[in-house]
Nucleic acid binder design. Structure first.
Lengths: 148, 148
DNA sequence: TTGCTCCTCACGTCACGTGAGGTGGC
DNA sequence: TTGCTCCTCACGTCACGTGAGGTGGC
């Protein structure tokens, strides 16, 4: 499989398969504005997706499942990213160094918040695992006792 | 605060506070049979909870949030635990060593399944964190560039 | 042409949220 | 007695699931 494959557009069922979700969910995300709608798609015709869009969706689903974010949370997140991307384009012409710095620092803060969320979850999972491990040892002890 | 405090029964609002949930959620869990109902509570009177019950609820909430289990999943889990606990009582009188061993092994298998779920989640969070870290480095690089 | 996947309503469901109106314990 | 928390309906909401009936591309 070549890395620079033709990148055929994907249908909604394929995208659902690739991201571990359902067509209904993808349509719903479009409906609430979490995924962009192709403005040129005629009523009743198929939705088509690029691999890049699949990656973006995969990212959203991970945030949803791993960090427990609501779709409203995710929407805020996406909107902020979009706003920053729009501003980034502006510098390329305007070259306002100070504004550029501010936006980059906002990005950093944002990423920092996400990493802290991840770390908190990891810590909770660590605790849960330690408790399960101790439970496991207890049951193993009982089994050894019983087999004597 | 003594460890062997009188253990005053707690009201639903206090339990909600301690477990980071709401009274409505606790009542709902009772309604669907996920939490036991005190069979002697008169209609309209307050629910009361022990600290032990608070711990059990906390455990359920952790499973729900960290592993993404549905309430149906949790119910299966609780029912299986209850069944094993009942059986454990039976040996104490019957002393059927073979049955005892089987039940303990089922417990072990069960704990093993849970730990694998935890590990899978941890791995996913690790990957997410690595990606966030690389994003962070990229933005930091841009900031350094911009400040030159 | 025949399957298969897609489409758009639209109602159902899960896991609660949110009042409305009323009762109970320090 | 006055607040506060509790109670029980019961309808609302979020995030989809699940048909029903129909169209579109290899």
């Amino acid at each position: 499989v070549s890395v620079s494959a033709p990148a055929r557009p994907l249908r909604i069922g394929e995208v659902a398969e690739l991201t571990g979700t359902t067509p209904r969910t993808i349509r719903y995300y479009e409906e609430i504005g979490l995924l962009p709608e192709a403005e040129d798609r005629p009523q009743g015709k198929q939705r088509l997706y690029s691999h890049e869009e699949v990656e973006r969706l995969r990212e959203l689903i991970r945030m949803r499942d791993l960090l427990g974010l609501s779709l409203e949370d995710l929407k805020q997140l996406v909107d902020a990213e979009t706003a920053r991307a729009r501003l980034r384009k502006r510098w390329q012409t305007a070259e306002d160094a100070e504004e550029q710095r501010e936006i980059l620092e906002q990005s950093l803060e944002h990423i920092g918040r996400q990493r802290r969320l991840v770390r908190a979850r990891q810590a909770e999972l660590e605790r849960l695992d330690r408790e399960l491990a101790s439970k496991q040892r207890r049951v193993r002890g009982l089994l050894r006792e019983a087999s004597e």
